[in-house]
Amino acid sequence: MHGASVSLVSHLMEVLHERCAVEPRAVRDAVDATEHYRVLNFLGDYFPAAELFAAFERLRSTRVAILGCGAVGSWTAVQLAHSGLENFIVIDGDQVEESNLNRSIFLHEDIGQPKVKAISSALHRISQRVRVRRVNENVCDADGLRALLSEARPDVIVNCADEPSVDLTSEWINEYCQDRRVPYVIAGGYNLHLSLIGMTVSPGVSACINCSRITLDELEDESLQGVRRLWRPKRNLGSLSPLTGITSSLAASEVLRLAVKSDRLRPAMWNRRGEFNFLTNELSFVDLPPRPECGCTAEDVRDRVSNNSQ
């Protein structure tokens, strides 16, 4: 630094620190000493050293509810536990069957067990510090889900439940979340196949599921407009583990972004949803902006929260 003054060098260091390019030796040593040094180093690309451990602590202590513990739900849960999250609420009334093993994290020894118990075992294999609240029931209506979530009080909800349908369960979650300002991630299940990447909703900040419906109705494929669909009950649709892996990896990444609660690392799936194409290995997205006519703006949410608390 030929001719640079101390104050200039100091300013340069401040800028580099703020932009996450340098870190104090003590922080590096502290990161190095933890088991989660890879996750911390990753977050270090977004958070300056002075904020790094606080961001990880927010992540670690986030209470995440996973509704539906099938293929995507089970994969999402274990990725979050590997990432350092320690508080889980898992909700599913089904048992593990042989047919689940081609795409879920369940093991052969789990067959016949409730899925929530098998997931709990998987999470405890990763860390004994993990706390899992198991809800071994299928949620059948909005009231039932509301009661359950009101008691469990999650910080983030991931919807992986496609029974009775993803649309319906997302609507129930949206109702609860808009009232309580709880963010949620919709993972998989759209249109009955597994390579779709759902949107992330932060009430009052981003478009909600109802906003997305308004836009999607407008975008409906013209070639299918005015057509009727052949009714086909009890279908056994195709699935493939790596597509589950891709959908769940993005759902888990979205939960991490929500869990650190910072503008430095915001959700990437606000106001859009995506699709991964098996044949071309490409990701594509559809923009789903907030719709004023939906009634989910920040002001609407504030009013609802205030009415709710009165």
Binding site: R38, V39, L40, N41, F42, L43, G44, D45, W75, V78, Q79, H82, S83, G245, I246, S248, S249, L250, A252, S253, L256
Partner: peptide, 9 residues
């Protein structure tokens, strides 16, 4: 740095 979700992807 690395994330388990990136490993899964």
């Amino acid at each position: 740095g690395g994330l388990p979700s990136l490993s899964a992807f």
